[in-house]
Amino acid sequence: MRIAAPVLASVLTLIVGSIFFASLGHDPLPTLYAFFVEPLSSMNGLSEWLLKASPLILIACGLAIGFRANVWNIGAEGQFIMGAVAASGVGLFWSDPDSALLLPLMFLAGMAAGMAWAAIPAFLRSRMNTNEILVTLMMTYIATLFLSYLVHGPWRDPAGFNYPQTALLPAAAMFQSFDPAYRLNSSIFITVVAVFLMWLFTDRSFLGYKMSVSGAAPLAARYAGFRESAAVWIGLLAGGAAAGIAGMAEAAGPLGQLSPQVSPGYGFAAIIVAFIGRLNAFGIVLGGLLMSLLFLGGEGVQMTLALPSALTRIFQGILLFFLLAADFFIFYRIRLVRPAPDAHALETAR
C-alpha cells in the first residue's frame, strides 16, 4: 500500500492532467513529455534539477525530524534567510577574502544562524508553552525585514547605484561548480550527507526513537520519561540548522550576493516535500526531486509549447493534491483496516 499510493496518485494525475490539457486544446502526450521528460534530457537540465532539488531536500530532512515529534517548524523560510545572511556576512566582510577557510566558516555561520533563529521559538515553546507554528512563522517575517534592512542599508553594494543588493561574494566564498558550463556545485554533497544523517537519526538512533515516541504518543513519551522539551529543541534546531545551511549554500551558489529576495519559497516548499516524502529520508529525496521537476517542467512547457504559467501551476497543484490526498487515505487505512486483517491472521495462526 505504501508504494501503491504514490503510483496511484501519479496515474490519477496523468489521467486528470491529460483531460485538463486536452480540454484546453493541448495535445496531452507532448505536453506531459515536455513537462516531465524534456527538462531532464540535457546535462544542463539535470544540473538545474539537482540544483533546485538540493535545498528542498536538505531543508525537508531537517524539518521532518521535528515534524515526526509533532514540532511544527513552518519558519524554515526565515531560518534559510538568516543562514544566507550570516554566511554572506562572513563572505563579504572576512578580513581575508581569499582564505581557504572562508567557505567552511560561512557554512558554520549559516548553520549557527539558522539554529539561532529556530532557538527562539524553541525557547518560547519549552519555557512558555507558546505555539511554535505561530512563532516560527512570525520569525520569518522578521528575517525578511532584517534582510531588507541590510541590503537597503549597511550592506548595500557601494558600487551598485544604491540598488538594494550587496556586492558579489569573492570567489573563495563560492562553492565550486563541477563544470563551469553548469550551475550544479559541490554543495550537493552537503545534502547527500544530510540525507544519510537524517536516515541514521530517525531510523537508528535512540534520540530519533524518542522523538518518534513524542510525536506518535506524547503521553507515552512522558510515561517513559523522555523530555518533551528535548524533542522541541532537537526538532526545531535540526530544521533551523538544515535551513540555515541551505541558505548558505544558496548564497554561496546560485545567488552569489544578497538581495531583498534570497529564497524562492524553499522554506515553505520544503514542508510539502517533507510530507510528500512521508517524513522519511528516502521519500524526501524523491519528493524533492519531484518538486524540483515540477518547477522545471512548468517552465519547460512555457518554453516549448507556450503554455501560460497559470496552467502549469494548476497542473502542479493537481499532482500535489493527489499525492497528499493519497497519503491521507492511506493513513486512514492503516488506522481502520489494519486491526481486522491482523486479527484474522491471529485466528488462523491459532
Binding site: S212, V213, A216, A217, L219, A220, Y223, I334
Partner: peptide, 12 residues
C-alpha cells in the same frame, strides 16, 4: 491504566 498511547505507542 491506559495501554494504548501511554503504556505503549499504538503505531509502533
Amino acid at each position: 491504566e491506559e495501554r494504548l498511547g501511554r503504556g505503549a505507542v499504538p503505531s509502533h
